[in-house]
Amino acid sequence: MKEFFIKLGDHPIYKKLLKEPLTYVAGAVLLSVFQIAHFTVFGKGWGVTSTFAVWGTWVYNALGGDAGSWAYYASEKMQQELHTSFLADGGSIRNLGIIFGALAATLFASQFKIKKIKTLRQVVAAILGGLFMGYGARLANGCNIGALFTAIASFSLSGWVFGAFLLLGAYIGSKLLAKYFM
């Protein structure tokens, strides 16, 4: 049985379909097809990070905090978000899907590996990078998906403005990375 799977994994057709990376442009077109389908079905584009804020707030509230009074959660729609559960929330399910979709792709390619953290530098980079992205995404009302990909496709000028300043941030980030995190 094991032999069979090893053979299957080495078969040229299998490799072509499930192992060798697709081109970036193929990825772009496929993502767009699903992005358009998402807008058609739900009347809104794909987003990732507003769900992160909700996840964090659930934890915050569970630890005894009261986020219900924050201006961010003032609207009725956002209040609802606070009182739903992980398995009943579309955004949570979609984000979980991204993790498992990527895991499936990696396993089919036989390329899964736990990649350990090796240096303190990586820990600091992950913490600072995560905090910056989390805070920034709330201010900008989204990430590269919500505030850029979806916004531009929606013909919102904000998407182009976000992109321009994102490039500035990426430039600063690259300099910091070369200086402190290499």
């Binding site: 600072l128 990078g129 995560g130 905090l131 910056f132 992205m133 989390g134 805070y135 920034g136 995404a137 709330r138 201010l139 900008a140 009302n141 990430c143 590269n144 505030a147 403005v161 976000f162 992109g163 321009a164 300043f165 994102l166 490039l167 500035l168 941030g169 990426a170 430039y171 600063i172 980030g173 910091l176």
Partner: peptide, 9 residues
């Protein structure tokens, strides 16, 4: 937000 996000990512 965009600048912070760019640095972070």
């Amino acid at each position: 937000g965009a600048v912070l996000f760019g640095i972070g990512m």
